[in-house]
Design a binder for these strands. Structure first.
Lengths: 340, 340
DNA sequence: CTGAAAGCGCTTACAG
DNA sequence: CTGAAAGCGCTTACAG
């Protein structure tokens, strides 16, 4: 393996100059730089990242932490972040919590992240009061995506979950629905991220502003998955007197709801309307009405936000916190209630 | 930041002993180990990964290369690989090619991977003849997942795509279909992975074994996405005289097909049956009949395959190459043809 | 603009 | 079982 002194020897300069020339530092004369570049390419020289990291103190890597990888939102955020990060020359270390508190603890309280990355992107990752010290202790620039828990000093990239829920609720109300069920995340989870709390809040707020007190019997909690939506809907049906519409906190939940409604012999939207949040890849296929959120943009912007501090402007975050707009997309899963 | 000599001093031993004790090497006495562990925890010492990598020559990281992140198959493979790799103490560097030849070239022919990881997992990543040298030049243990291009000396983890296609075709034939269309990947792509070629091959093989010559007019190529399946189906309908059944090379393509058929006023399965491959998360919601493949198992097994060589048994790959079984899952998108 | 030298913080033979 | 010393391969002040 050729090392930096091989290049230095061939180019007739010091290793310091090779290092500077190859990294494009400005303090190298044009002719010297060319000679170094020539020598390096002739020898097929590539600097050892481990050595650079140790000597330079920078890893040129970013950790991206997600609660799951497969769901539409997370895979889309990761894909966009990967593109932006690699383009800027950073490696992406992927950490999946898998919904496991143990994994979360390990990430925060062991050596997992220590000196391994230059920055952190927490996607929908909840933090408890006493977790902040651990995160702050890393002394790394960071960004949160999709609410999660805001970290003091870090920018966040997200949508307005309350407004999003209001949009969904408005759509259902304007069609004439009054008995509207809501499928949301698990509120008893201490570490619950704000996402589903905000969505429920927006829903209830809008219902009340129209003079309708949300019926607790029509409020069910579930995980943010197809299976969660299915289970929640089954529970809803078990309670009798089904709603005329369901607002699910995510498209995956909404799809689970549709599947369960259909297998119970109910037609969508004829018997029950369903609306979700996301605009999942598959939403169009299912004909799902939803409030679309820009997932890729969130991943890309979060990555860009990190680029400033990563390049040494420790306190210069890109555009700081950003709230991206969401938009109603009407398809075939919503219609006026049967007898309105 | 506490360093190894701080720990050495507190424990009253040399840095070499600290290093050995902390890494659990056997050549350390019980009492010394305890003293070191105590000192380390008291000081909150964590070894610098960069220094360890430089001195030890191992990165304890694995690169996982995927053509895309969001599709069901890839995100599922990555999720499973991540779990297994982190559990074994390895970092996962994620590289997404994004279908870009440029990204592929950059990965293979620049410093991207050089001394950055100890092993490589190529998921459905095509290699041309002259790419092998680049991959071999890395001198890393590796594994391929889902066909892609087999790399000499590397094990592979995959399904039998030919058999899978036969299973799908058999299902359609046994329902009485004869005019069966096939939506597959783009065969003109030089770098085409074998997946869709094999699936087409299995399809045609089984058709012919039943005395049916596959109609070229019923063979359309597309990308492995919902949009691809939609477009291919639109093309199929444009050609007139639609098939009574469609075998799509993936569930995402099949979902695109269903969406397009429906918006063309055709009913599934009444007018046209549709079968896919994967058993995508959403397949159940859509009622899609499919041939299920174990994606998570492929990711997990691929990761495990790497663990042997990673731990120093350079030539000892886990179970070497593995072919996992697939299974027909009948749902509501297939039925006998209208007038059979 | 360039170089000599120190330093980044570990691990690994080697010797005992 | 343990330590002294060299070495991993760069980058960074510092000096000129």
């Amino acid at each position: 393996m050729t090392r930096i002194d091989d290049v230095a020897r061939l180019a007739g300069v010091s290793t310091a100059t090779v290092s500077r020339a190859l990294r494009g530092l400005p303090t190298v004369s044009q002719s010297t730089r060319e000679r170094v570049l020539e020598a390096a390419s002739q020898l097929g020289y590539i600097a050892s990242p481990s050595a650079s990291r140790l000597a330079g103190g920078k890893t040129r890597a970013v950790a991206v932490v997600v609660p799951r990888i497969t769901p539409w939102f997370f895979s889309t955020v990761v894909e966009a972040a990967e593109e932006r990060l690699h383009r800027a020359g950073y490696d992406l270390l992927l950490f999946n919590l898998g919904g496991s508190e143990h994994a979360r603890q390990r990430l925060l309280y062991t050596s997992t992240l220590h000196k391994r990355v230059d920055a952190l992107m927490l996607v929908a990752t909840p933090l408890a009061e006493n977790d902040f010290a651990a995160v702050t202790g890393l002394a790394l620039p960071g960004v949160t995506v999709s609410a999660g828990t805001p970290v003091p000093g870090w920018p966040s990239v997200r949508i307005d979950d309350i407004a999003t829920a209001r949009t969904a609720t408005d759509h259902l109300l304007s069609l004439g629905h009054r008995r509207i069920a809501h499928i949301s995340g698990d509120s008893t989870d201490e570490l619950a991220i704000s996402t589903h709390l905000d969505r429920r809040h927006g829903f209830q707020q809008r219902m009340r502003s129209r003079g309708i007190e949300p019926d607790p019997a029509l409020d069910v909690e579930a995980t943010f998955t197809i299976a969660g939506g299915s289970k929640a809907t089954a529970e809803l049906l078990r309670r009798g007197d089904p709603p005329t519409a369901i607002f699910a906190a995510s498209d995956e939940m909404a799809m689970g709801a549709i599947a369960t409604l259909r297998s119970a012999g109910l037609r969508v939207p004829d018997d029950v309307s369903v609306i979700g949040v996301d605009d999942h890849d598959v939403a169009g296929v299912v004909g799902l009405t939803t409030v679309a959120q820009p997932a890729a943009a969130q991943g890309r912007i979060a990555a860009e936000t990190l680029l400033g501090p990563l390049r040494g402007n420790v306190d210069e975050y890109g555009d700081r916190s950003v709230v991206l707009p969401t938009q109603l997309v009407v398809r075939d899963s919503t219609a006026p209630p049967r007898e309105s």
